[in-house]
Design a protein around this nucleic acid. Structure first.
Lengths: 66, 66
DNA sequence: CCCTTATGTAAAGCAAACTTTACGTAAAGC
DNA sequence: GCTTTACGTAAAGTTTGCTTTACATAAGGG
């Protein structure tokens, strides 16, 4: 699944590690989601969106889902 | 996590089994999510919201998250 | 009464999310 | 050159979403 994580992180001047700490997951998890390696849990997606002050739909791209 | 699944399912006159088929998971999975037993994946949450023609935020309640 | 439909629980097993550790690399500063 | 910072990969291990099967119950219709 594509997403705007990298772009939003840059807009907020945040490193992967800082974001990981904020949403309470490991840096690996952020890297893997950023690179589309897997489908995060709903709560994690929500926490990330909240960190960037936007909706889940603005962070994650569902256009290619099913 | 609380959610509006049961209410939306009723509005759409849909059984748990019909919803499960539509979003391609087992009936158990729908039951467990409906009863707040766990945190679904983002893609599943999206598919459910899409089935009810609304946003993820309208189906799931994040007010008690972290 | 019986049968079907819709919902629920429980338990075992599988698949995938997430963690942890370790290592590689490129850029920037001293 | 050396060190630090930020990003990336890989692989093994833990946790949890999700499946499958089986069984229980209440409601409604014939």
């Amino acid at each position: 699944m594509k997403n705007q994580l990298k772009e939003l992180r840059n807009q907020f001047n945040m490193t992967q590690e800082q974001l990981a700490d904020k949403v309470a997951v490991s840096r690996q998890t952020i890297i893997s989601i950023e690179n589309g390696k897997y489908n995060p849990s709903l709560i994690l997606a929500y926490k990330i969106a909240k960190e960037f002050r936007c909706s889940i739909e603005e962070v994650f791209d569902f256009s290619e889902v099913e």
